[in-house]
Nucleic acid binder design. Structure first.
Length: 287
DNA sequence: TGATATGTTATCTT
DNA sequence: CAAGATAACATATC
């Protein structure tokens, strides 16, 4: 699923590919996934591509911003040289049989003035593209907690928020209002790295455990970005510039490894439910 | 056929 | 009233 490392990979590749380009046309194939006036961005030039938590923003030169949330199955694929043909073949098949663009799951298409294209695919239609006035961004601050790779993210900050809640640590890690960008994959992975049982309440962690967890979050997110994200089983995530999967799935220690051997102790990885979502962990290693 | 997958938000419960 | 828990969203796969 697109979490912080996947969305950051998308941001970096799109930044290289679309900054400076002028939007020539917007094709909306699924009305409810486009919010705002598409007319507002026709002729606009992209001047920036930024990320906050799992949200992407394209700053435009006309004081409008295009916000994109991929939710569970959203994909962005950039195509540099697609000459008005109806379909093209991608170098490798995209998940869910969308190996053509536009495909069965294509919802919104942006054509740039230089003839390049950006395809927004989304099997389950939870994601969206929204056009807003850029000034409205500053007012709201988007309601997210600190970026884990930013300056405000410290052991002291974690101590403060953890001490105030009796929710389980796994649930708190995924709370975007507390920490921005961690989803189910990386919540599971960082808890394994820090050797903490996901069922523990956040306020039960001692100082050395919080320190380990803080370090694990930073280390794992950095490594996942370096490897261009995780394309897990049944995951729609691909890199936008070549539609290739990420590489961090090879590093996964617990996520989607139910019944398999723990790489550390050889014990069995188990799966439980927390907040209606799967949690994977090693009961022997994670205390 | 019914359980399962997940990010976010609205709504319900404690 | 706030914190926390859960349903809803859409759709495919096993």
């Amino acid at each position: 699923m697109p979490e912080l490392p996947e969305v950051e990979t998308i941001r970096r590749q799109l930044f290289k590919n679309i900054v400076g380009k002028k939007i020539a046309e917007v094709r909306i194939l699924e009305k409810k996934q486009f919010i705002g006036e598409f007319d507002d961005i026709i002729g606009a030039q992209i001047v920036n591509v930024w990320r906050r938590a799992k949200l992407l923003g394209f700053g435009c030169d006309n004081k409008k911003t295009i916000l994109i949330h991929l939710k569970l199955t959203g994909q962005l694929v950039f195509v540099a040289d697609y000459k008005n043909a109806v379909v093209i073949k991608m170098p490798r098949p995209l998940p869910f049989g969308s190996d053509q663009l536009p495909g069965r799951t294509t919802r919104i298409i942006i054509r740039f003035a230089d003839g390049s294209w950006l395809f927004f695919n989304d099997l389950r239609k939870f994601g969206w593209v929204k056009v807003i006035k850029s000034q409205n961004l500053k007012v709201k601050n988007l309601g997210y907690g600190p970026e884990p790779l930013g300056r405000e993210f410290t052991v002291e900050y974690l101590k403060r928020i953890f001490s105030k809640t009796r929710r389980t640590i796994k649930i708190v890690l995924m709370d975007q209002k507390k920490i921005a960008g961690i989803g189910n994959i990386y919540a599971n992975e960082v808890l394994f790295e820090a050797k903490i049982d996901p069922r523990r309440t956040a306020d039960s962690l001692d100082n050395s455990e919080i320190k380990r967890l803080c370090q694990a979050i930073v280390d794992i997110l950095k490594e996942a970005i370096r490897l261009k994200g995780t394309s897990a089983a049944d995951d729609a995530y691909v890199q936008p510039n070549n539609a290739a999967p990420g590489n961090y799935q090879r590093r996964l220690q617990v996520y989607q490894r139910e019944g398999k051997e723990c790489f550390h102790c050889g014990g069995e990885i188990v799966r439980i439910k927390q907040g209606g979502r799967s949690t994977f962990f090693c009961p022997h290693c994670q205390i």
